[in-house]
């Protein structure tokens, strides 16, 4: 397993929207290193090569619902938990970049 650098952790923190300070980044780099070392042993499982990954614990398929409209939430309930609202919408600080 490769060494986890502070820069790598900083990149992961950016991806996951966590504003971490240098001390946290260093701490996490060290902890991640230890944890990854511990989990690295799954790489030893050689008989896994041709095995289908298990993504679900239930053998279900094609679970669907009919296209029927059901009541939405009352708008006051929708906005009740909002940190900020304006004009019946959720208010957020300025957005830096477009992404979609």
């Amino acid at each position: 397993m490769s060494q986890i650098t502070r820069e790598e952790v900083a990149h992961l923190a950016r991806l996951s929207r966590l504003a971490l300070d240098d001390a946290e980044l260093d701490g996490l780099a060290a902890q991640l290193e230890v944890i990854l070392e511990a989990v690295a042993k799954i790489g030893e499982v050689t008989d896994a090569a041709d095995v289908t990954p298990m993504t679900h614990a239930v053998p279900l398929e094609n679970v669907m619902r009919p296209d029927v409209v059901r009541a939405s939430l009352p708008r006051e309930d929708v906005l009740a938990g909002a940190p900020a609202a304006e004009d019946d919408r959720f208010r957020v600080p300025r957005i830096l970049d477009e992404e979609s």
Binding site: D88, R89, F90, R91, V92, P93, R94, I95, E98
Partner: peptide, 11 residues
């Protein structure tokens, strides 16, 4: 989006 002070979201 450019130059806006804030945004309002409708879901």
């Amino acid at each position: 989006i450019h130059g806006a002070t804030h945004s309002l979201v409708d879901y």
